[in-house]
């Protein structure tokens, strides 16, 4: 199955680019990286983490109890890093046809010219 990332999943993976994080820090990091556009409730975060873990894109690397609260630390897997880079490249290409007139014309010409 081709990996298609929803917006929350994309930003959760992006949040883990610089190292393993636990739930609350992921929520804050996602909000900061998306400029406030993606605000995850805790329940939604764990649904996203479950989907990502099921697909092998993140993994639990550490567990600890801090002030009586259970914490698990999540990290990107190699597949997760690849999926994130692929999605970023797709988004960049999609943005380019809007911001760059030359790229837009090239895409149109490629589409209409006979093979």
């Amino acid at each position: 199955m081709t990996i298609q990332l929803r917006s929350p999943s994309y930003f959760v993976l992006a949040a883990l680019l610089d190292g393993a994080l636990h739930g609350y820090v992921i929520i804050k990091r996602v909000e900061a990286l998306s400029d406030g556009a993606v605000r995850l409730a805790a329940g939604s975060l764990y649904a996203v983490l479950d989907r990502l873990a099921d697909a092998g894109l993140v993994e639990v690397v550490n567990e600890e109890i801090v002030n009586g609260r259970a914490r698990r630390y999540y990290a990107l897997t190699a597949d997760g890093g690849t999926a994130l880079q692929d999605e970023a490249a797709r988004l960049a290409a999609a943005a380019k046809v809007v911001t760059n007139a030359t790229a837009r014309r090239r895409a149109i010409n490629t589409a209409v010219s006979p093979a």
């Binding site: 329940g43 764990y46 698990r72």
Partner: peptide, 13 residues
């Protein structure tokens, strides 16, 4: 499996 972890995150937030 996950209840305590989710509760911890809810209390953190």
């Amino acid at each position: 499996e996950r209840g305590d972890e989710l509760l911890g995150t809810l209390l953190d937030a």
